[in-house]
Simulated assay, not measured.
Amino acid sequence: MALIIGLALASPSAALELTLPFSSQLTTRVVTAPDSHALAIGPYADGQLPVLDLEGQVERQVFRIPGQALTTLQIFAPLREQIIAAGYDTIFECHAASCGGFDFRFATEVISAPDMYVDLTDFRFLSAARGEQDHLGLLVSASSNAGFLQMIRVTATVAAEALRVSRPGVPAQARTPTGTESPAEPGTAQTGNPTPSQASLSLADSLNRMGHVILSDLSFPTGSSRLASGSTPSLESLADFLRADPTRRVALVGHTDAVGALAGNIALSRQRAAAVRDRLVTEYGIPANQMEAEGMGYLSPIAPNTTAAGREANRRVEAVLLNTE
């Protein structure tokens, strides 16, 4: 199925024609001019995402591939080949963890759900340029029953500036941990304290402004996914937030320190996120379909794992706002 990506500008060569899987459905197409876009050109690291600030005509498109049995690479690879064949030079390419994982996904522009879906553990990204006035970013991911493709193209560029700190949200070093993995000292994992910037915002404000919030008062026994009992203000606030609008959905994302194997840490972090979801369902009456549980293991640290304090900071559960529709 051949689809035209981008409007023809000064000449037919300005158009970009890509062949997508036959069942692909265009769910979003927005063209604005003049407009701006921050194109990722490197991985998220040390609290920053390197980007090019671009200005010009910005075209945003999302395609859904229903009932697909393709992997993200099977979707991504043919498109990459076509983009290169069309005369683009690759600037940056990555897969999930090598992009910067969770932090990359929330620092780069993503069309809101349900049009675009991003699996935090399996997405692929490509940024490329054709000359100085034609740039694009390609993002591919998949759910259990569909593939998703987002392309953002900026043409007739006015400016392409150098590296800049990422947005939206708070840089990683400003985010606050919660204890959710084996603590530095024997016993129960301890929670972190909010930074001043977080303390000044309610949970709802943090979700609406930054798209995510650390649930800073959760506690798990060492090496266990059992959520400690007792009053949990962050869950009460999150329940109020979800109850106020049944269309709101969040992902509960578990994180660990770097002690142990990746597979075990991912499993444990997902189990702890699931424990938080189950508590919200059973004790607060929140419908399960408003939440999903994911685990990143140690792939998205917010502090060095070389110190006890850093490891404690990395052990946390976050709530991520998926949509506000």
Rank of each mutant, 00 (worst) to 15 (best):
A10T: 12
A10L: 13
S11T: 15
P12Y: 10
S13V: 11
S13W: 05
A14R: 09
A14V: 08
L16E: 05
L16R: 00
E17I: 14
L18P: 00
L18T: 02
P21K: 07
P21A: 14
S23K: 10
S23Y: 03
S23V: 14
S24N: 11
S24Y: 09
S24Q: 09
L26P: 07
L26T: 12
T28Y: 12
V30L: 14
V31F: 04
A33W: 03
P34I: 13
P34F: 11
P34W: 07
D35V: 03
D35F: 06
S36M: 09
S36P: 01
A38C: 04
A38V: 02
L39H: 00
A40T: 03
G42H: 00
G42F: 00
G42P: 01
G42N: 02
P43M: 08
A45T: 04
A45I: 05
D46H: 04
G47W: 01
G47A: 09
Q48D: 12
P50A: 10
L52N: 07
L54G: 04
G56L: 11
V58L: 13
E59A: 14
R60F: 08
V62H: 06
F63E: 11
F63S: 10
F63R: 07
R64C: 12
I65D: 06
I65T: 04
G67W: 06
A69K: 03
T71A: 13
T72M: 07
I75D: 00
F76L: 11
L79F: 07
